[in-house]
Nucleic acid binder design. Structure first.
Lengths: 341, 341
DNA sequence: TTGTACGCGTTATCAG
DNA sequence: CTGATAACGCGTACAA
């Protein structure tokens, strides 16, 4: 027994009366060892309470059974949830998820990726597509497989598992137009280096444009994905003249903020102004009025991403991108515009 | 350059014309090396884009600069947020947070702890105090420091950073009684192996008892910390006769569920029934009516836990527990009981 | 101040 | 099917 009390391969080998090589085989290629000896080894393992030493194993095998993920922040429920799904899926294959956060900053994202690589992750999950070419180059050089989640363009050069943010936003805007809204504002996420945010803006812009309308400041405002920031933005929007009859938001958190903002403006949603969101997180069902929003199959996306990446690691399978469909879930926050005075 | 293109200590040493030992020292004990040579080494490091190999370092130093955390689930915003706080705090000290989830199951928690230990975490953060003695024994044997968050009892034998859940719940119940409520129900979390949940029940029980009231089934119900489950529970509670005039919930998610349940029962909160929560997450401010709830200093708790654990790892400093105070934040969901018919 | 050399726990190659 | 034994990348006594 090694001096610090934690048993090593060697201890097990000695105890079972075999070589360390055999013990190692028992753990990794059980079929390549005679059942008899295997039993002896397994007994020794159990008696000693032996657990393989991660660093030793990683060093020798150049594999960690770990995949890394860099997400913007766990404070957004949609990502926290996504992590949980990923983790559950991966742990079923006995691989560990190592999480880092970028706070929506590509610099920090690059840094975190480097950190994860240094820790020897076998693969990487990243959010969205927009990041400096350097980052992609780094990944390519190291030859480590990665998959992009939450975005999907048919001509994306990387493996991605997501949906068409632009189309989804366009359809939502079309629905808003369909109900008769013409003075439409948008509270968007920060679009710099965030293709989900910018694509959603473009989608709305396209839908309006098709009706001869434009989406521009001051009716288009970018804020952090935070309740308060969005509430403030909504108040500014509602103070505009003419006042918008509908506010399309970059996600559900912003939509919840917008609803609070309208209340704080002395108005009521959806009577005075309709509000729509994006993502369909639980929050959307809990605010008053409940949010009409874009439903994203985030659980299926997470599972698919995990499986794809698992397939790619430790094989030269390049994998293939997967596109998901989104839908609109109609609740109470979107209604036809009020009659004009 | 090692064959796979990723540079090693050796490559840097060769490039700088020094030994690997010197390079290693430059990285770990920069003062123990002459500025001149250090400059050469640092240059070589930069040119090669060298990053220390995690497993190699861990194996040699028997340290990983990693601390592990096992939480129930990231789906509960309060834990996701706590993780973010922990991570931010730890990464400032250049240590990585490795997260595992137990899904509120002590078996799985023990398993995850073992996994984290196998990965060589330098310390551990665990939620709450209730777990099998075996688990504590394992930790003790391995001599790895750990701190318990979210619970604090003055006679807890372990290092903990939290608050008195029972007292907090008692005060909330007292407040409810103060307003005149007498028919009080509770939707609690699952209390098995969850001291936060059970202490909160006990706190409410004590407050009622002091007024000659009892808290028992069917007026006391346990559910998962989930919206739907809690909504269903609320409906059952509101179908009881006599109907409770207040429902005290185990956390804010349950309270939000209870509010939905009362709405689905054709009743309105707080007019027909008051509802109070626990935790004060953002959700509490967003539901209608906004929740009167127990404010928990979770950010400060997270920071304090990180610092305490950091202090404990790699030293024989036993650390000291920290108790935080909670408060009640009054919003709209708690009012005096309706006049009796 | 710097270099040499060994060990950390495991896997993998190659004989037997 | 099993056993020696050489890596794996780094830290650190110890020596110079």
């Amino acid at each position: 027994m090694s001096f610090n009390g934690i048993p090593t391969l060697d201890d097990v080998a000695r105890r079972a009366g075999v070589s360390t090589a055999t013990v190692s085989r028992c753990l990794n290629l059980p079929d390549r060892v005679r059942p008899e000896t295997r039993a002896r080894v397994e007994a020794a393992v159990a008696e000693l309470g032996y657990t393989p030493h991660f660093a030793g194993r990683a060093l020798a095998s150049n594999r960690t059974n770990t995949i890394g993920a860099v997400i913007p922040t766990m404070e957004n429920a949609i990502f926290a949830l996504g992590l949980q799904v990923l983790q559950d899926e991966l742990s079923a294959s006995d691989v560990t998820l190592l999480v880092a956060t970028s706070h929506y900053d590509t610099q920090r994202e690059a840094h975190q990726i480097r950190a994860l690589l240094a820790r020897g992750v076998d693969g990487l999950i990243l959010i969205g597509e927009a990041r400096p070419e350097d980052t992609y180059r780094l990944l390519q050089e190291r030859g480590i497989p990665f998959v992009l989640v939450w975005s999907h363009r048919s001509d994306c050069p990387h493996r991605c598992v997501g949906f068409d943010n632009r189309a989804a936003a366009r359809r939502m805007a079309e629905r808003v137009l369909e109900l008769g809204h013409r003075r439409i504002a948008m509270i968007a996420g920060v679009t710099a280096w965030n293709d989900r945010a910018s694509e959603r803006v473009e989608g709305v812009r396209e839908a309006l444009w098709a009706r001869g309308l434009v989406l521009d400041p001051p009716y288009l405002v970018e804020t952090a994905y935070a309740l308060d920031a969005s509430a403030e933005a909504a108040k500014r929007l509602l103070a505009l003249s003419p006042r918008p009859t509908a506010i399309i938001c970059g996600n559900d958190v912003q939509a919840a903020g917008a609803i609070r903002g309208t209340r704080e403006s002395g108005l009521a949603a959806p009577r005075d102004v309709s509000v729509v969101g994006f993502d369909d997180i639980e929050l959307a069902t809990v605010v008053e009025p409940a949010l009409t929003t874009v439903r994203v199959p985030h659980r299926r996306m997470g599972r698919a991403a995990a499986h794809l990446l698992l397939r790619m690691v430790g094989s030269d399978d390049p994998g293939e991108s997967i596109a998901f469909e989104t839908g609109i879930v109609e609740r109470a926050s979107l209604v036809p515009p009020p009659d004009m005075p």
